[in-house]
């Protein structure tokens, strides 16, 4: 039972008057994974997460959570959800609010009080337990909201842009907890448009644009299939590799600095062939690195142009 899907979307579509927010989206979030839902602004990430929580209902398709029938609200005790639009009752005291939000998840009040205190302590808010939300700084409020998301020990944590608006210190704090939750077996599904974060955290990703899936899969697999064409080489001075780098069956383009070069291979060429060629040419290599493309690069390659044209089309339609 380690590879079954905690969240399975099967061809879900959501239409709004005038546009389609999500179009026939299918994806599976494996148990225990840290899963990144990536896409530019307006791609349909928040709509998708809201449908998973059954805050809004899809027009078509099926959503299965934990392999069971039952809506997000029925299973809400097992799910923690951090919405994109953060919001708390401003007049409530911090601990009272946490207890209330846990209670509507079905947690016993005493248990909620105890774990509320634990988390407040842990995130350095112990002195603020009896303060009103209004008295807290923005960053503290974000932390309180994060506590509310994980307080009831959910099996699945859904975070919509969890790092938006956080300073570097708090980003670190939240990231550490996400990693820790993941290690303890919690499945994490989060959305972001910041690729560097996704790259560091995710086991698997799904990139969507204009409500449609562009690609998905394990992070390593995605990188392998959508990259591996960039090679960085460094040589001892003296050798000449010009002939190899000008071989257009092998190299699409090269940025040659003399002793250092960034090489982009022709599609489908095994980097090992370049290595052979270089050695045969008598080069003494100090570095030969098949550079993994960054997720950001893949993202821009796959989404950038498309998203830009998409927006232009939408504008002419409107």
């Amino acid at each position: 039972m380690s590879n079954d899907a905690v969240v399975a979307l099967q061809g879900i579509t959501k239409r709004y008057a005038g546009h389609i927010a999500v179009r026939e989206l299918t994806l599976n979030v494996p148990r225990g994974a840290v899963y990144g839902l990536l896409g530019p602004n307006g791609a349909g990430k928040t709509t998708t997460l809201r449908m998973i929580m059954s805050i809004i209902l899809p027009d078509e398709g099926r959503i299965v959570l934990f392999g069971e029938s039952g809506s997000g609200q029925d299973l809400s005790q097992r799910i923690g959800y951090l919405p994109e639009e953060r919001g708390l009752y401003r007049k409530m005291k911090v601990l009272d609010l946490l207890v209330f939000l846990a209670e509507i998840k079905g947690v016993d009040r005493r248990v909620a009080r105890r774990s509320g205190r634990y988390w407040l302590e842990r995130l350095g808010l112990a002195d603020w337990t009896e303060k009103k939300i209004d008295d807290l700084s923005k960053g503290m409020q974000q932390k309180v909201q994060f506590i509310a998301t994980v307080l009831h020990r959910p099996e699945l944590v859904i975070l919509d842009e969890p790092f938006a608006g956080l300073d570097p210190v708090n980003t670190q704090v939240i990231k550490d907890i996400v990693v820790e939750l993941s290690k303890s077996g919690t499945t994490i599904l989060f959305s972001t448009h910041i690729m560097q974060q996704a790259e560091k955290l995710c086991d698997a990703v799904c990139i969507i644009a204009r409500g449609q899936k562009v690609l998905d899969g394990g992070l390593a697999e995605v990188k392998r299939t959508h990259g591996g064409r960039h090679v960085v080489i460094a040589l001892e001075p003296g050798g000449s590799v010009d002939r190899v780098l000008r071989d257009r069956t092998l190299v699409l383009q090269a940025n040659d600095y003399g002793n250092y070069a960034e090489v982009e291979l022709v599609d489908g060429v095994d980097p090992q062939r370049l290595l052979h060629g270089l050695i045969e040419a008598g080069a003494r290599l100090t570095r030969f690195e098949v550079a993994e493309p960054s997720l950001e690069k893949i993202f821009i390659d796959k989404v950038g142009a498309e998203a830009a044209t998409a927006r232009a089309v939408e504008e002419t339609n409107a």
């Binding site: 809201r50 609200q73 959800y81 919405p83 919001g87 708390l88 509507i104 998840k105």
Partner: peptide, 12 residues
Amino acid sequence: TRVIEVLTSSLR
């Protein structure tokens, strides 16, 4: 305050 979204994720 947008707290509604947290609430509707737990409550009908």
